[in-house]
């Protein structure tokens, strides 16, 4: 059996693929007539939409935190948690903006390897950002509570809950991180997880990042092979 022999089989496979396309096209047309313009489940479009949503949320929250920081600039107990939140928001918003910019500017008529590399880089960046967000969430919860209670309710969390409680919250946050990673690694082994939970668990455990970096390495190897 040789590769060239498969070319004759390809002729037949090609004919079937064409027949499928004609049939799919006819069904698509019928469905469009029935339901109006059909919504595409295109993953690429969804990815760009999610990024745009994240960017919009990031900008709004950054504005909110920036305003809070400006109005409490001379009160370190409020300015410090706001600055920490602001930094995290800034990093997340810039990451979303860069990824969205790359996605929107991608020229899909460029060579396959170069486009796939850009996409793999975007995926790795996004996965890394998601993992950091999940890891830092228990630590960011405390400054968020301080800022929100002050901004919305006018309450001083230090006075209301006590400085000791605030520090304990931070300590628990630090402790929760390694425990969360261990729990996520254990859960990631179970095949029964629903796709949404699997994505969450794999992001936290670092499996998604390893996969994204693996895809980048694979592309590099593919290109470098001689």
């Amino acid at each position: 059996m040789e590769l060239d022999e498969l070319k004759s089989a390809w002729g037949e496979l090609e004919r079937r693929l064409s027949a499928l396309e004609v049939r799919d096209g006819a069904r698509e047309e019928a469905r469009r007539r029935e339901q109006g313009v059909r919504r595409s489940r295109g993953a690429l479009r969804q990815h760009a939409l999610v990024l745009a949503f994240e960017l919009a949320c990031g900008v709004l929250l950054s504005l909110f935190v920036g305003r809070f920081l400006a109005s409490h600039f001379h009160e370190p107990k409020f300015a410090l948690p706001a600055a920490v939140l602001g930094m995290a928001l800034l990093v997340s918003t810039v990451t979303s903006a860069v990824c969205l910019w790359i996605l929107l500017r991608l020229d899909y008529s460029a060579p396959v390897l170069s486009i796939q590399r850009r996409l793999a880089e975007v995926r790795a960046t996004r996965t890394r950002a998601a993992q950091w967000t999940l890891l830092l969430a228990p630590l960011l919860w405390t400054p968020l509570a301080i800022v929100l209670s002050k901004a919305w309710l006018g309450l001083d969390a230090y006075a209301g809950l006590g400085a000791g409680y605030v520090l304990l919250n931070l300590a628990v946050g630090i402790l929760v991180i390694p425990l969360g990673i261990q729990a996520a690694r254990a859960c990631a082994r179970y095949p029964w997880l629903a796709p949404r939970w699997r994505r969450f668990v794999e992001s936290l455990a670092g499996t998604s990042l390893a996969r994204a970096i693996g895809a980048l390495d694979e592309l590099e190897r593919y290109e470098a092979e001689r």
Binding site: G42, A43, Y108, Q116, L119, R123
Partner: peptide, 22 residues
């Protein structure tokens, strides 16, 4: 040109689905 675009979209589509656990 068409092959480039089509293959790029198809490979991204397949990789996205796989990254989303599908």
């Amino acid at each position: 040109w068409m092959y480039r675009v089509a293959l790029n979209v198809a490979i991204s589509f397949a990789r996205n689905a796989s990254a989303r656990g599908r």
